[in-house]
Design a protein around this nucleic acid. Sequence first.
DNA 1: ATAGATAGTGATTGGCCACTAACTTGGAAG
DNA 2: CTTCCAAGTTAGTGGCCAATCACTATCTAT
Lengths: 182, 182
Amino acid sequence: MRMSAEERRESVVRAAMIEFARGGYRGTSTEAIARRVGVSQPYLFRLFPGKQAMFEAAAERCVEETWRVFDEASAGLTGEAAAEAMSGAYLGLVEDRDQLMMQMQLYVSVFAARAAGEEEIGESARRLWESLFERVRIRIGGDMKDATHFFAHGMLINTLVALGFPPEHRIWGGFDECDGID
Amino acid sequence: MRMSAEERRESVVRAAMIEFARGGYRGTSTEAIARRVGVSQPYLFRLFPGKQAMFEAAAERCVEETWRVFDEASAGLTGEAAAEAMSGAYLGLVEDRDQLMMQMQLYVSVFAARAAGEEEIGESARRLWESLFERVRIRIGGDMKDATHFFAHGMLINTLVALGFPPEHRIWGGFDECDGID
DNA sequence: ATAGATAGTGATTGGCCACTAACTTGGAAG
DNA sequence: CTTCCAAGTTAGTGGCCAATCACTATCTAT
């Protein structure tokens, strides 16, 4: 039950990832996060300065986690082989829809923040994303075009998952032959 | 000032597209939409049964509009030429960020609705999307893989726009050589 | 044992927001 | 001119939710 603040923060981040992924920033109540953690709602504000900080922590964790998946899958590989391994790993993430959706929520939230005049959030999100892009690019051999294709197919997968197309649907077929990059 | 209910509904849909694109479903108040239309907030509820109906109308309009752009750009063309024309047209849409973002908002909202147990919304959204996919696929020659690539790059563009990468940023470079499909 | 610190709760509040009800205005046909 | 309908408004309500405050419980070190 009782745990250190650091441990609690960790479980809050994980719960926040799930809740924000499903409800978006505005559509998620801190109450829902607290319920998932198994803690009272006001206590969240001892662990984080505010709701936004929880979202940012969840978003950052999400990007880190994505790289971890890519990194593990392609350990020791380079070029085309690495690309195929990472594509396969990303397709595996389809099972864990929440992580893919947290990405999407990050994107739309950044846009909302920018539309509301808060550009700093956009900058840090861009840095996060670009650093993931760069690490992937280097891993698959350094070609810009290949990296672009890789990410493009990832973003399409996100969309198909969001819309709820079942993996056996024909639209998913396009991935069978090319595994993310061609 | 005074206009027919049908005309008003039309301007509400346009305003809703902009506001929902920027704020998302939960992050957009009907007050904001009403302000943009130039009408009192309660009057929206005479024109639409509720906020959700406004969102659905905006989403449907957004998909229609996307096809209209593709259709105009590729009129009379087929195959690779059509694909290039449509890719170019989509890149043109980057200027009008709101339309691209409304797409993203549709995707995450569908996921949220599904997470909340409302599957019907997901079904109609999938039908909408799939019908766009099909029309594009046929226009570019019928190949499934080509269509998948086309949409994948579209989704990546959405992401880059959301995050606010300026068009001159190097990450956009990957599009210079292949114009959306390779 | 007990003092101090750290983990955690219950009650509350002020603001926002979707939606309703009751009323007012404008304009076109007879 | 007046009557009637559709366009539009003002005022209000109930519910939700982030954040605060004052409080309690549990551990640890001396």
